[in-house]
Design a protein around this nucleic acid. Sequence first.
DNA 1: TATTGTTATACTCTATAACTATA
DNA 2: TATAGTTATAGAGTATAACAATA
Lengths: 151, 151
Amino acid sequence: MTSDESSDGPATDRAAFDALVEASFAVQGLLGRTADRHRLSLTQLRLLGILRDREPTMLDLARHLQLEKSSASGLIDRAEQRGLVIRKPGAQDRRTIRVAITPDGRKLIRRTERALAQPAAELLAPLTPRQRRQLTGLLRDLLGPDPLPSS
Amino acid sequence: MTSDESSDGPATDRAAFDALVEASFAVQGLLGRTADRHRLSLTQLRLLGILRDREPTMLDLARHLQLEKSSASGLIDRAEQRGLVIRKPGAQDRRTIRVAITPDGRKLIRRTERALAQPAAELLAPLTPRQRRQLTGLLRDLLGPDPLPSS
DNA sequence: TATTGTTATACTCTATAACTATA
DNA sequence: TATAGTTATAGAGTATAACAATA
């Protein structure tokens, strides 16, 4: 396999990407199952996560979640009906509304995040602490800087 | 073990899991966008990937995709209407049917996989070849053996 | 005119429950 | 009775297009 490794673009890339795809399904499955147990969809879990420390407009939200604005409307409709978020009138621009998490929503996201700790630990169990740090570093290099804080 | 490593569960775990979650959204987004361009949902992409080298029964398929059997029925209905898969009668047990990919389905999954190579390479671009191999190794340790070949 | 958000409509994906056919 | 699969039904999530209110 030395010739493999010396030329090592395509095969290495393919293996790395396949591993990432498998890992992504494992992680999404874990997130989805945990959210499900708390009667949340994955999208709603992301929504509440975003709203923990922000009160974005509908358009901000749609951009963060990569949704059409009409899809964001429906998402907020359903979350609002469940009492997890509220629509608040925008201050300057009266066309806008701001979406805020409610105390109930905050409780739910906290509970769900706590519940996430155990399956997360189980997922990471096969790795040593050193390997976990290595993995974190590699994934951070892969992902680059977090885009959310800026916008 | 240094004192760092002996204490270092929760914070390290949290950072590693957060990085995995972010990476999973990045990978799923990439997969979803590429599938979308080929008029496939993520589930259909997985379906065709499974069918490349298997002719599972509906129940096998439901298990592989972690779906209820009725959900698998609908999924196959839609894929069959598009000519991507066919239902074939099962051999011994006449209650079963086997799902097979069609030539059109095979063409489509091939095209989609080829289209995936470029964004995959872009995603991996920040890592050196050595880092890619490291990442692959870590993720394989994390995921354990592939469960599909056995079942 | 342009932008923000909602509504109307349609489709995919998913689940639960009831059903048919075969074992 | 038990299992494999389908159908009926419902709801979430998503998109496109048309619309209202505000800028």
